[in-house]
Nucleic acid binder design. Structure first.
Length: 491
DNA sequence: CGTCTTTGACCGGCGC
DNA sequence: GCGCCGGTCAAAGACG
């Protein structure tokens, strides 16, 4: 959560911070000890920026802010400096040293947050995977189809994403992740596509490429034809998971860190704006595609829908997005195999996650389950509710929050009532997981920054340079996007 | 000249 | 079978 707030809060708090301290510096002289008390809370909100600030002493935007804010004190010093320039210089030096110290402290904080994030998200995936496995075991009892252990949705990407700094992840996680994460694919790979639930449970993922061909794959269990058929009936609708991002942008596409080549454009029904089709060109044969289309109701909103798994290492700018979409898709898809067992934290956490509470909606639409990250709304948004077609809906348990999360059961055609209930549980579970996981929200913030072409949180000194225009300093509680709020909605 | 975009044609799925 | 629609292909043109 803090991370998410930080980017947008950066310029905001940063300026504020400098204001406070510059004024304090001019007022106080050498007395810095008590200043750390009131400075700290603000810095905690701006950890990323602090890093950038400290790393780049060159006049990046926030540093400029600092300089500008300091200049008055310098101006004061001009008048007073004539009297005691040495004192003023020493004050500034001390201030500078203190800033460096804060920067170091914030770095360590960021490291810790990152570690915790990785750990918790890994644990989340573990829980989801366990549920999937439990469910698959149940299915084994019923039909005896499943024989594999790796989960293409859950394993390679999440493991690749989280196995690096996972000191205290559970034993299971380590085993499962190591078992399922190929060493030859150590980099982040987006997992946005799951083919069939069966595959998610049993299929083996070979580098993220062409899951479809191996879906259901594993003709390895010839004895399971019957149950296979039965499964396919209900699982075909889950062939692909998509992660859709709604963001305000005047640019034709959002900058997500990858290279894309446009291969088609069509007029889609119901939208006067054409839909553009892009394919990832960062590696030969990368199956990842995305569709870009402006929202019919608000043409300033760009809707980007990702589909598929990258089969190549991702640049740093795309990693955050990969993590987020991977997590979203994995939870969505894996959740589809889970039953409600209360393992995942629920809305009890919402009260401490104001943004999660307001940004999370989840829905699925046939034929693909789709998670939509709605980055277009303000910190207290009117809940983004996509008007569903007349189909059975049910609210998800966002207790007391103005969020509707209609999950249209029609998204799963062919389901019996029990299956629909299970799906309802799935959606509920997934939604709760998403909304209650602050680290996931953090990942969303990182993704947003990537989406907007802003640098991802990890400490890259030059990060703040170019895209500061995307930041809205007035929204300290929201991510990087103007008026943004992250909303999960299910189409 | 290589790469990328544009754009009409083509294909497959789906509903009637 | 037909038409609609979404998605993809591939030739032609634009661009650096």
């Amino acid at each position: 959560m803090e991370k998410k707030h930080a980017p947008s809060g950066l310029p905001f708090f940063h300026s504020d911070d400098f204001l406070r301290r510059s004024s304090a510096a001019s007022d106080r002289t050498l007395d810095d000890d008590d200043s750390s008390d009131h400075v700290k809370p603000h810095i905690k909100e701006m950890d990323f920026f602090s890093i950038n600030k400290g790393a780049s002493s060159s006049p990046s935007f926030d540093v400029n802010t600092g300089l500008n804010l300091l200049s008055p004190s310098q101006g004061v010093s001009r008048t007073s400096t004539a009297k005691k320039p040495n004192t003023e210089t020493s004050v500034l030096k001390i201030e500078l040293e203190r800033l460096y110290e804060e920067n170091r402290r914030l770095r360590s904080t960021l490291d810790q947050i990152t570690t915790n994030y990785n750990e918790l998200q890994g644990q989340l995936f573990m829980v989801v995977q366990k549920q999937a496995l439990a469910n698959s075991n149940q299915q084994l009892k019923d039909g005896g189809v499943l024989n594999g252990m790796s989960n293409p949705v859950m394993d390679p990407r999440p493991s690749a994403a989280f196995d690096v700094n996972e000191p205290s992840a559970s034993d299971d996680k380590g085993q499962e992740f190591s078992a399922s994460s190929p060493a030859n694919n150590p980099m982040e790979v987006v997992s946005m596509e799951g083919d069939r639930r069966m595959v998610q449970i049993q299929g083996k993922h070979d580098g993220g490429n062409d899951q479809t061909s191996q879906s259901c794959g594993s003709p390895k269990s010839p004895t399971a034809d019957q149950s296979k058929k039965e499964e396919q009936v209900s699982e075909v609708p889950f062939r692909k998971a998509r992660v859709s991002v709604r963001a305000r942008s005047e640019a034709p596409t959002i900058n997500d860190g990858c290279q894309w080549r446009k291969y088609g454009q069509k007029m889609a029904k119901g939208n006067p704006c054409p839909r553009a089709y892009y394919r990832c060109t960062m590696a030969v044969g990368c199956p990842v595609r995305k569709q870009v289309q402006r929202c019919a109701e608000d043409k300033s909103i760009l809707i980007t829908t990702y589909e598929g798994n990258h089969n190549h290492p991702l640049p740093p700018a795309a990693v955050a997005m990969a993590k987020t979409t991977s997590a979203a898709a994995a939870m969505l898809l894996s959740g589809s195999t889970t039953s409600k067992d209360g393992v995942l934290p629920s809305s009890a956490y919402f009260h401490s996650l104001p943004y999660a509470s307001t940004m999370a909606t989840l829905s699925s639409s046939p034929p693909f389950p789709t998670i939509t990250l709605d980055l277009t709304q303000g910190p207290n948004p009117v809940p983004y509710i996509r008007t569903p077609p007349p189909a059975p809906t049910f609210p998800l348990p966002f207790q007391g929050y103005p969020v509707l999360a209609p999950s249209r059961l029609s998204a799963f055609p062919g389901m019996q009532m029990g299956q629909q209930q299970r799906t309802a549980s799935m959606v509920e579970t997934v939604t709760a997981a998403i909304a209650s996981d602050p680290n996931f929200t953090t990942a969303l913030a990182a993704a947003i920054s990537t989406i907007m072409g802003a640098p991802p949180p990890p400490p890259t000194p030059s990060n703040n340079g170019g895209d500061s225009s995307n930041w809205v300093p007035g929204l300290p509680g929201s991510p990087q996007l103007p008026q943004s709020c992250t909303t999960f909605s299910t189409n």
